[in-house]
Structures are given as structure tokens and as C-alpha cells.
Nucleic acid binder design. Structure first.
Length: 419
RNA sequence: GCGCAGGUGGUAGAGCGGUCAAUUACAACAGACUGUAAAUCUGUCGCCUACGGGCUACGGAGGUUCGAAUCCUCCCCUGCGCA
């Protein structure tokens, strides 16, 4: 199955797994980058994957990176008009995506204020907020009550950000039109619709209102988008509520987007998350690429692929690397722990990543972390990024050989095995 | 030998009569991290505990006091200065 999306962009499904919805595809973009999917997108929020240089992306087999419209826009400020485009600025020929800033509507607003993530895990006894609670929340936001130092006011027509991190006391405004204009200026291959992310702390009513906004904004994004060399992905919302998710997937899935992403609250557990995928995926056209936003952990990747997801993005490989967590096919370990002080062994057995290839040992990396040497974060990032890319490669290979389910079980039992 | 300054929990270093098992930092240990506000954050960190509390602790030994890491005496040790 081959789908031309215009402007030299093409998505082709090379192989469908016979037992699951997993598939291997290729995404071709004008820059000559050909991305094999399922793929993991490394997060390079400010046009840079933290700790890595452009060459490192190639060395770690990174095929796709996602930057962030909100942070680039705020960070560039007056310098935005001179911005040369992400491929030039990053010195990277792979596929580049930009998030719309929609996530920051949540992460810098409600998420920050309530210290919650898009995935829940709050105690069962804390009930899902009811109608009145949602209504008060919405009114509070609209009136700007508790609109303190860092906050976001989501209005029907867009969002006002007050963000002292950029040394600006004034509110700045971002909406669908502006996000698309910015993303066209930034010049990524894949751009995302402007949306509002919610969390498990939002009740069904607020989630529905946010979803409706997202749908209106999605339509606006499609109407405003003009660059044929960029793919525009629509984002499904609806939280972890079955009817809302289905409604959102149906609505967004029927719009003429080039691809789709699943965003927003994924519930209160992994089971919730996988259910959300099952509710959504049937409405998202098989012939188009499908992305799962902000996920994930190793198991989530397998479960996502199994349900037909083509691309993922997550900060786990890079952030956890900087925090000392090393990923391997035998699971994760913390290299800063004392147990690694004298471990003169590679970070992972038979690893071909640039860090391991340079001969770094656990003991040496441990020491670098203890000395707060910046090289530590870089080496760990090189390793983790390579590992995640390698894992995706293994997954693709398994699908090609029609043994995805077997591979999933074998790999997960090893990776999640308690040591 | 004389003079001065000191000896506090793994380390550094607060405290200078009660609210001190002792601020804080580092180390150690455990945990978290899911469209990056994050090379970050959280917890434990004398011993025992039925988590109410109990016990032993601020160089050593005495003493003053209702009460001492905090005041006094002697001893031991360290650093600096003078011999």
C-alpha cells in the first residue's frame, strides 16, 4: 500500500503483521530522508537533542526528531525571522517534526499547577472530577483566577501563556493559526495541529470541552496550512473516556490530515492507555501514518506497535540518560549506584553504540556522573538513543519476519525481568 | 615550654544553657522521570521500635545547674605564632 501525500512525501506500508495490527512502513520526505517505521522519535525541544551533536544523531541511527514550536518561538523571540529552518539549524537530514505548542497549554498550565502528568496514577479514592468541579475549573481558567506567575489561560480562541522562564512578564498568545504559521517558518517535515492536552485529573466534562476546542482548532489548522512540503497531523483527544475518544478519533480521523497523532490523557494506568488506543485506532485510516504522542516506556512501545502505531516520541531515552539510567535488553539500571563503582564491564553486553564502542565501562561512566562531568550525560544519551533505535529496528525486523508477537513476549520478559 | 585558635554525626561545617538526635551542604542509600519548566526531583540517612516512643550521643573525666553540644576544672589531641 503506497500513499502519496504530495510534495514528494510518501508513506508506504511494506508489511502488515498477520496476527496483530503492527506494520512496517517507510515515510519519505522531500529532504531525502526515508524513515522506516515503527520508529522512535527523539525529542529535541529547542532544535537540539540535549547532550547530542548533529553527528551523534546519525551515529545513533536516529531517523526522526521532534522539536517544539512553543519553546523555539519563545526562545528565538526577535530572532525568529532569521531562522533558517530546522534542518539547517540542526544540521540534520533525517525527518524532523514539530509539536504545535498544544502540549505546553497543558504542561505549563494545569499540569504544572497541579503537578500532574498526562498519565495519571492517582489514588482510586480520588474521584474523577464531576460536572461542577469541571465547570468551576473552566470558569476559573477563563476568568484568569489564580493566574499566577506561570500559568496558561485556555480560551475558546487560543491560549495565553505567562512564562517567566523567558523573562517576559506579559502574556503571549498562541492559537491554531499562529502555531501553523510558526511551524511553517520552522520548516519541519511533519507538523502537528494545535490542540489542548488534558490529564486524568480533568473530569469528562472539561475533557469534552477541551476536545471540542481541539476539533475546532484542527479544522483551523487544516484551513490555514499552506506549505505542501510539510505533513500536517491531526491530534485525537478525548481523555480516557470511551465515547469521547471514539468521537474524537472519528472526527479527527475523517479530516483530511496527512497523518494522525493520539494525544492527551491516556488514563490512570497502562491498561487505560492501551484501551484508549483500541478505541481510537479503528477510526484512523490505515494507509496514513499514526503517531503516539509522548510515549513511551518499552512496554508501551510494543503495545502501541501491536495496535498499529507507526511512530512514538518520548523524552525517556534522553532525560533518563542524563539522570543516570541506562537502558539495555536486560532492563534499566542506574549507573550512578555504588554497585557500578568498580564494574569494569560495558554499559550493555555486545552493544555497538558510540559510547560502548569507545570503550566506556560502567565504572568509568559512574565516575563521570559522580564528578558531574557533562560527558556523562552525553555518553549515557548516546547509549540510550542508540538502544531505543536498535529496539525499533528489532521490532521492524520481527514484523517483517512475521514473528512480532513472539518477539514482543521474549523481549519484554527479558527487559522487565526483576533483577 | 609559653601564647592563641580549635576538637560536633561518613566528611565539611552550623549551633554556644532548655524548643537539639542536633540547621545546612556533600557523600551514601532508595525511588521517580511517558508530545522536556528538568544534567532534575523525592525520600531515608545514631541505635531499637508494637511508630506512641525508648536508648546512647557533640574529644575524655569530673563539676555547676531543675536542665549542658553549649558554663567551669583537669586531662588528651590538632593547627598557628613565639621560644
Amino acid at each position: 500500500m503506497r500513499l502519496s501525500l504530495g510534495g514528494g512525501i510518501m508513506f508506504e506500508i511494506v508489511k502488515n503483521d498477520t496476527k496483530t495490527r503492527a506494520r512496517v512502513g517507510t515515510l519519505t520526505v522531500p529532504h531525502g530522508g526515508k524513515l522506516l517505521t515503527p520508529a522512535f522519535t527523539m525529542v529535541g525541544t529547542r532544535a537540539k537533542v540535549i547532550s547530542l551533536e548533529p553527528n551523534d544523531l546519525v551515529r545513533t541511527n536516529t531517523g526522526i526528531v521532534i522539536s517544539n514550536t512553543y519553546h523555539l518561538w519563545r526562545g528565538l523571540g526577535e530572532r525568529l525571522p532569521e531562522f533558517k529552518g530546522l534542518h539547517t539549524v540542526m544540521g540534520y537530514d533525517g525527518v524532523i517534526a514539530t509539536d504545535s505548542g498544544g502540549f505546553q497549554v497543558f504542561s505549563l498550565g494545569f499540569g504544572r499547577e497541579h503537578e500532574v502528568s498526562k498519565i495519571g496514577f492517582f489514588p482510586e479514592e480520588e474521584k474523577t472530577p464531576g460536572f461542577l468541579s469541571d465547570l468551576f475549573l473552566q470558569i476559573r481558567i477563563w476568568l484568569g483566577i489564580k493566574h499566577s506567575r506561570n500559568s496558561v489561560r485556555v480560551m475558546p480562541w487560543g491560549a495565553y501563556f505567562k512564562d517567566e522562564n523567558y523573562g517576559d512578564e506579559r502574556s503571549v498568545f498562541l492559537n491554531a493559526t499562529k502555531s501553523i504559521m510558526l511551524q511553517e517558518k520552522l520548516g519541519a517535515d511533519i507538523i502537528l495541529a494545535f490542540d489542548e492536552c488534558t490529564s486524568p485529573r480533568h473530569g469528562r466534562h472539561y475533557t469534552k470541552w477541551a476536545m471540542k476546542r481541539t476539533h475546532r482548532w484542527a479544522k483551523k489548522c487544516l484551513a490555514v496550512k499552506s506549505n505542501p512540503n510539510q505533513l500536517l497531523f491531526g491530534i485525537v483527544q478525548g481523555g480516557a473516556f470511551e465515547d469521547l475518544r471514539k468521537e474524537s478519533a472519528r472526527t479527527i480521523g475523517s479530516m483530511p490530515f496527512d497523518g494522525f497523532a493520539i494525544g492527551g490523557s491516556l488514563g490512570n494506568s497502562k491498561e487505560d492507555m492501551y484501551r484508549v488506543l483500541e478505541w481510537s485506532m479503528p477510526y484512523l485510516p490505515d494507509e496514513k501514518p499514526r503517531h503516539l504522542l509522548g510515549i513511551g516506556q518499552i512496554r508501551d512501545i510494543f503495545e502501541g506497535v501491536e495496535r498499529g502505531i507507526d511512530t512514538f516520541d518520548c523524552v525517556i531515552p534522553t532525560r533518563e540518560a542524563r539522570h543516570g539510567a541506562i537502558w539495555t535488553y536486560d532492563g534499566r539500571y542506574d549507573v550512578t549506584k555504588g554497585a557500578n563503582k568498580n564494574a569494569d564491564v560495558p554499559l550493555a553486553p555486545d552493544c555497538a553504540c558510540p559510547a560502548c564502542a569507545s570503550g566506556i565501562t560502567r565504572a568509568k561512566l559512574h565516575e563521570l556522573f559522580k564528578n558531574k562531568d557533562r560527558e556523562a550525560g552525553k555518553l549515557a544519551t548516546l547509549h540510550n538513543v542508540y538502544f531505543f533505535n536498535d529496539l525499533m529496528k528489532s521490532i521492524r525486523q520481527a514484523i517483517m519476519e512475521d514473528r512480532f508477537s513472539e518477539y514482543k513476549e521474549a523481549a519484554l520478559s527479558r527487559i522487565e525481568k526483576k533483577k
